[in-house]
C-alpha cells in the first residue's frame, strides 16, 4: 500500500470519528424518544464503515464478518424499538384462537 492511499485512509477515519461525535450529540439531547432511535440507527451504520476502514489500516481480512453482524443487529434493534413504541408489544401472537 503506497503512501498516498495511507494518507487517504487516515483522513477518512478521522472524518468518520467526527461524524460519529456529531451524531452522539443528538443521542444525548433529543427531546423525544424517537429522535434518539433515529440517531442511534445512523450511528450503527456509520460504525460499519469505520470497521471497514480499520480493517484496511490493520491489513487483515478477519474483521469483515463483524461488519455484517453489526449491521444485522442494529437494523433488527431499530425495527423492534419502533414497533414497541407504537403498540406496546413486538410480536403479534393471537392467544385466543384455537390453532
Amino acid at each position: 500500500m503506497n503512501l498516498f492511499l495511507n494518507i487517504v485512509f487516515i483522513i477518512a477515519i478521522v472524518g468518520m470519528a467526527i461524524a460519529m461525535g456529531i451524531a452522539s450529540y443528538r443521542i444525548i439531547r433529543g427531546p423525544t424518544l424517537h429522535d434518539k432511535i433515529v440517531a442511534l440507527d445512523a450511528f450503527g451504520v456509520m460504525l460499519m464503515a469505520t470497521i471497514g476502514i480499520f480493517s484496511v489500516l490493520l491489513d487483515t481480512s478477519y474483521l469483515i464478518v463483524v461488519i455484517m453482524l453489526i449491521g444485522m443487529l442494529g437494523a433488527v434493534g431499530t425495527i423492534a424499538m419502533a414497533k414497541f413504541l407504537e403498540k406496546g408489544w413486538v410480536i403479534d401472537i393471537d392467544r385466543d384462537s384455537d390453532e
Partner: peptide, 14 residues
C-alpha cells in the same frame, strides 16, 4: 466521497 456524505448526514441530524 463516502466520508463526506456521512458527515453531511451527521450535520443534518443535528
Amino acid at each position: 466521497s463516502g466520508v463526506f456524505f456521512s458527515i453531511i448526514a451527521a450535520i443534518g441530524v443535528v
